[in-house]
Structures are given as C-alpha cells and as structure tokens.
Simulated assay, not measured.
Amino acid sequence: MKVKVISVLDDNYMYLVIEEQTRDAIAVDASVAKKLKEIVQKESVNLKAILTTHHHLDHCRGNVDLLQQFPELQVYGADDRIGGLTHRVMHNQEMKFGAINVKCLFTPCHTSGHICYFMREDDCPDAPALFSGDTLFIGGCGIFYEGTAEQMYRNLIDTIGSLPGDTKIFCGHENTVRNLKFALKVEPDNEKVKEKLAWAKARDDDDIPTVPSSLEEEFLYNPFMRVREEAVKKFTGKTDPVDVMRILRKEKDSFKKPKDRLPIPTILAFQFCLLNQSSSTENGAE
C-alpha cells in the first residue's frame, strides 16, 4: 500500500492511497480536484473512491468536480454537508477496496460528523495507516468547533489510542512545528518534544512534509495524548483527564507566536480565497 502525500492550499494535505498490484487508488480529503487529477494521471492509477473526513471546504471542495470527471466515483463520509457525498458511513463500518481494508472511526468534535479512516492491506508487512483529518495532528489535535473536551478525549484516548502502536498517522494539515512549540510550553523538560521539534523545524526549513508520525510516538510528545501524565496535569492545574483536555485546548487556542499564528478568522478567510482561486484555475481563468 503506497500513500502519496499531496500538499495543497496553505497547509493542507490530501492523500492518494494506491494498491500497487492492481493500480487502483483511493483519495482522502480531495480538496483540489485539478491537482488530484494530475497526480492520478502521473501515477497511472484508477481512482475508485474518495474518503472525506469532514465537511470543511479545505477537505472536500474537489469532490463535485471529480465526480463530473469520474462518473463512477464513490464519495464516502459521515456528514450530509460533504459536497458530492454518495455513501454515508457509520462508526466501525468496514469497507474493502481490492486488498485495502478500511475501518471508519467516528470522531466527532472538530465537526459533529468527523470520521477517521484506518487502513491496512491484505498480506502486507507494512504498518497500518490512520487518516486522521482534523482530529489528530502531529503533536496536537483539532479545534473543538462543534464538540466538547469529552468527545475529543474519547476520540484520542479510547478510539484512536486503542489502535496498534505502529499505526502511521497521516493528518489533514502541516502544523507540526507550532504544535510542538506549544507542547514544549506544556512540558519544557520533555526530551522527546525537544527532539521532535528540532526534527520538524529542519523538515520545515527544507519544505519537506512531517507526515507521517506513528501512534506510539504521539503518546511521547503530543500533550493531547498525554492528558494523564503528571507534568501535563500540573500545567493545566487539573487532575481529571477530560478537564486537562479542556484546559489544554483553551491554552492552545490562545497560544500565539508572531511568526506562526494568525487569528482563526484570518486563516479561514485565507483558505476560502485559495479555494476560490483553485476553482478559477480549474475553469481556465487566470
């Protein structure tokens, strides 16, 4: 199972999962149709399905255009707000695309209909993969736009946390450096945070993606996965893990560095402009 990492918009990722024997492929979070179609053609694969984690435009904007270009394409997701949705999925639903097995994991919080996709390939020694959208990031987690700390705790600790430790994490955005800067504020003596931050900065300087990480690594440096650790409890002043999660998210929302943090409305407005630009390009406008 080959995973093609595709950088789009400001800091988004979409992915192309390829079954190398048949050359069939599944896209995850197809935000920019033109870019994905170019990669599909370059890789000489047959695009069979799109798996969408949630309804935000920077994760599903390309669905409708791709359906027009690939009429037999199937679009999966758990939220009717997803453009081009053809198949609604449920928690723990299992699907099979050739030798690639997909398990749908319902992770509501960032949005009320967020789904993560856990994949493994038959008779393949490679580690499984989780496409976590905006639920779990490298060193962080998604903003609680439509949910609660209780939900995110269950998502990260119970649902995702129970997966095999070697599971590769492919998240929806490249924001590892700023996530780890916050993690260092939470745990200034955590050597794993320091090591990962130095590594991520070097990757960022060379414009190289930091995905994937692994689940077992996240438990070492991601404060949102470490809500039961004494150092993280001490930072928040709370002992109950859900309360720790709630305070962490509040602190992260207000954590700003002049060079790497813009107000959330500004970020959303910028992404909206980029999406409109990509739409214009696809229609031949300049």
Results as ranks from 00 to 15, higher is better:
Val3Glu: 08
Val8Pro: 05
Leu9Lys: 01
Asp10Thr: 07
Asn12Ile: 06
Thr22Gly: 09
Arg23Phe: 11
Arg23Val: 08
Ala25Lys: 07
Val28Pro: 13
Ala30Ser: 10
Ala30Phe: 03
Ser31Arg: 01
Val32Glu: 08
Val32Asn: 13
Gln41Asp: 12
Gln41Cys: 03
Glu43Cys: 02
Asn46Glu: 13
Thr53Leu: 01
His54Cys: 09
His55Met: 10
His56Pro: 00
Val64Pro: 00
Asp65Ala: 14
Leu67Ser: 08
Gln68Val: 02
Pro71Val: 06
Leu73Trp: 04
Gly77Asn: 05
Ala78Lys: 12
Ala78Asn: 12
Asp80Glu: 12
Asp80Val: 10
Arg81Tyr: 04
Gly83Pro: 09
Gly84His: 01
Met90Gly: 03
His91Ile: 03
Glu94Gln: 15
Glu94Val: 15
Lys96Ala: 15
Leu105Lys: 05
Phe106Ile: 00
Cys109Leu: 01
His110Lys: 01
Thr111Val: 02
Ser112Thr: 06
Ser112Lys: 14
Gly113Phe: 06
Glu121Gln: 15
Glu121Thr: 15
Asp122Gly: 04
Asp123Met: 07
Pro125Asp: 07
Ala129Val: 09
Leu130Cys: 08
Leu130His: 10
Ser132Arg: 09
Asp134Val: 05
Asp134His: 12
Thr135Pro: 02
Gly142Val: 06
Tyr145Pro: 00
Gly147Ser: 06
Thr148Ala: 02
Thr148Tyr: 07
Glu150Pro: 04
Met152Glu: 11
Tyr153Ala: 03
Arg154Trp: 05
Asp158His: 12
Asp158Lys: 05
Thr159Asp: 07
Gly161His: 06
Leu163Ile: 09
Asp166Cys: 15
Thr167Pro: 03
Lys168Gly: 00
Gly172Glu: 02
Asn175Tyr: 01
Asn175Pro: 01
Arg178His: 12
Arg178Asn: 13
Asn179Met: 10
Lys181Tyr: 04
Phe182Met: 13
Phe182Ser: 14
Leu184Met: 11
Val186Pro: 03
Glu187Pro: 04
Glu187Met: 15
Asn190Met: 05
Lys192Ile: 01
Lys192Pro: 00
Lys194Ser: 10
Ala202Met: 02
Asp204Gly: 05
Asp204Thr: 13
Asp205Arg: 12
Pro209Asn: 02
Pro212Leu: 11
Asn222Ser: 05
Met225Phe: 01
Arg226Asp: 02
Arg228Gly: 12
Arg228Asp: 13
Ala231Cys: 10
Val232Arg: 05
Val232Trp: 12
Phe235Leu: 08
Gly237Ile: 03
Thr239Leu: 14
Val242Lys: 02
Asp243Arg: 13
Leu248Arg: 14
Lys250Ala: 15
Asp253Trp: 00
Lys256Ala: 15
Lys257Trp: 13
Lys257Arg: 09
Arg261Asp: 07
Leu262Met: 10
Pro265Cys: 08
Ala269Val: 03
Phe270Val: 07
Leu274Gly: 11
Glu282Asp: 15
Glu282Leu: 11
Asn283Ile: 01
Ala285Ile: 00
Ala285Trp: 13
